[in-house]
Design a protein around this nucleic acid. Structure first.
Length: 239
DNA sequence: CTGGGGATGGGGCCC
DNA sequence: GGGGCCCCATCCCCA
């Protein structure tokens, strides 16, 4: 359920070793482009001896993508599309790749590796990140991090069954499963729900035109999950 | 297999 | 900065 633009998630299964990062600041590699040519620079701005040919290799799985060897500090790879001429705006990348682009937009004051194109160098900015000590997720604000940490500490405990939740209102919703309280009523039928989101999903069942439509057969569905199942069944091959 | 309800998770926004 | 709420998403289960 990757939805947030704030949380930084690791694209690869291998997580970065921040301890190593802290101790080997000088090993961070800065990768730049010159037109369509790529070169690897060290933090001092000088060309890495290995140069492009030994720094990048073609991804055997995804043609058209260059996948550099894992960053020696972060243990991460930085895949990005290869396009001759002007390089694309990273914001146009799929979110999964944009996360890595965002991650790379730090500076050496932050002791973070970064990956950028020279055409976008002026867009680079110093940006602090707040890292969860439990799972290493990164957040752009301390408040967001504190909120996230609650998902680990689970401070809200149900007195009736002992189940713990990260937020008071999650506990409140859970308590309704004990009390049977259903404050959210459907205006079209007699049904009532304990959760507003579930009422919203229910309201879709009253609508002739559902929110989610198949691109192939134009059949509509009340939930994205139902549409996904429909597409996976083969009605709407992904173009 | 499909559609829908129940329960829950998590980031964002507002006060 | 914290709490409450919103919205979206997902998983599980059942008819």
């Amino acid at each position: 359920m990757p939805r947030s633009f704030l949380v930084k998630k690791h694209l690869t299964n291998k997580k970065p070793d921040y301890g190593v990062l802290d101790s080997k600041k000088h090993d961070v590699i800065h990768i730049e482009s010159s037109s369509s040519k790529l070169k690897a620079l060290n933090p001092h701005g000088t060309l890495c001896p290995s140069g492009l040919s030994s720094t990048f290799r073609m991804n055997p799985i995804s043609s058209g993508m260059y996948v550099p060897p894992q960053n020696p500090v972060l243990g991460l790879s930085f895949p990005f599309p290869v396009t001759p001429g002007p390089l694309p705006d990273p914001r146009s990348f799929p979110l999964s790749q944009r996360v890595l682009q965002d991650r790379s937009d730090g500076c050496f004051d932050c002791q973070r590796a970064f990956l950028s194109f020279s055409s976008l160098a002026d867009q680079r900015q110093c940006q602090k990140f707040f890292i969860c000590k439990f799972c290493e997720k990164e957040y752009v604000s301390l408040g967001a991090l504190k909120m996230h940490i609650r998902t680990h500490t689970l401070p809200c405990v149900c007195k009736l069954c002992g189940k713990a939740f990260s937020r008071p209102w999650l506990l409140q919703g859970h308590i309704r499963t004990h009390t049977g309280e259903k404050p959210f009523s459907c205006p079209h039928c007699s049904r009532a729900f304990a959760d507003r989101s579930n009422l919203r999903a229910h309201l879709q069942t009253h609508s002739e035109i559902k929110k989610y439509q198949c691109r192939s057969c134009f059949k509509t569905f009340s939930r994205i999950s139902l549409l996904s199942k429909h597409e996976e069944a083969g009605c709407c091959p992904v173009s």
